[in-house]
Design a protein around this nucleic acid. Sequence first.
DNA 1: CGGTCGATTGAGTGAGCTCAACTTGAGTGG
DNA 2: CCACTCAAGTTGAGCTCACTCAATCGACCG
Lengths: 225, 225
Amino acid sequence: MRPITICRSLKPEVLADMRRLGTMQRLKSGQPVFHEGDPARRVFMLTLGSLKIYTLLGDGRRQVTGFMFPGDFLGISLEGEYAFTIEALQSAELWWFSRPAFDSFIEAHPSVERELYRMAAHELAAAQRQMVLLGRKTAAERLASFFLELLKSQEQLNGGRTERQFDLPMSRLDIADYLGLTKETVSRMLSELRSRGLIRLEQQNRIEVLDREQLEDVAGGNDEV
Amino acid sequence: MRPITICRSLKPEVLADMRRLGTMQRLKSGQPVFHEGDPARRVFMLTLGSLKIYTLLGDGRRQVTGFMFPGDFLGISLEGEYAFTIEALQSAELWWFSRPAFDSFIEAHPSVERELYRMAAHELAAAQRQMVLLGRKTAAERLASFFLELLKSQEQLNGGRTERQFDLPMSRLDIADYLGLTKETVSRMLSELRSRGLIRLEQQNRIEVLDREQLEDVAGGNDEV
DNA sequence: CGGTCGATTGAGTGAGCTCAACTTGAGTGG
DNA sequence: CCACTCAAGTTGAGCTCACTCAATCGACCG
């Protein structure tokens, strides 16, 4: 039994409060926050940069189960060991808390407990969508869904304003391991979406969405009518 | 935003308490508990039988995201709509609670809130394992993993006693839609595991594990040495 | 400029899918 | 009790989408 939790979007006043209680840590690109099997002793909040969360199979196959962006929260499990590895994609900055400190914080702010629960429910819904993606979507549908997910989280960070562009802080291999594909297939599907005029590469790692409606059709499997 | 939650393994005394507050409902095989998009008004606890949870894509592709067994808990989301459909696999019996009734119950038992959170964390860990399965495992590995998952949940229901057999209350198609395969592939892999002597079909829908160690090797990808 | 690493593109392969035939088993009625 | 029906499961044959392996491209950097 390895209970884990990833949480997002704590209220600003709560974040400020936790920042007072926590300790800051800087990470370089590629540096791990912790490894699979480490005891789950700390609670983290990401403030800068981005992280990837992944699990390895015995023979080296890798599944990226999520990415984390500023404001995201992780490591809130009540016991046991981490069931995954977390690594910085770029220079990153996070705040950590010992579990007793976090527990006493929860006690001081009882409303936060329900908030944490709400966030876990949100993560579960995201996990369920990812299962549909991994279990039933084609390569093109997966990449389109991923781009829309990134676009939406970008929009949420900017207070709900509609966006046309977003960054890809992760490599093609990371994307592949998140979508259950190979890096070659990711590259090919990216080229396909580009040649169909749905997206444009502003730079190697920055995407502009040219036709959002059709991208959403592809993502939802309502393509090739 | 469609927050959802599936929870398991509430403590017996809590279950008893909720049973006093709830209303019982019987379900026939194939009968839905609710549909995708229904407002999330109620909280359920399953007491008898088993259920499947699934999401449909526009063109009919289906992903089963989980199964529920007696003692399992579901529908604890604070707002929004159900993001999936739940259907009975057999005759089933469940207890439901209006959200206000459930909320006041939570208020009366504050310790339950943390318990609910712990269960959600447990579900998240399971969701993460399922992402590894769907993203990176072969057909044989998926089926072996599934059988071990069922065996373990069977053992947990029986108070931790080791078991050799378990039931498959779902059809081959349900299994396929859970594992991201087709029913034909499930059938073929089942025949393969059987011909390799790792399992035996006690009946059409009852499996006996003959070589658990090797089944675990297959499930974890440590096969074909 | 060469060197290196990530991304793209190409060619051929294969695991799992599709389509189809056949088998099994659970009901149902004569 | 057996014949019939119908749904579920199994097996076979061929195909396809994504994979593997390999070559090339391109950006960054000493």
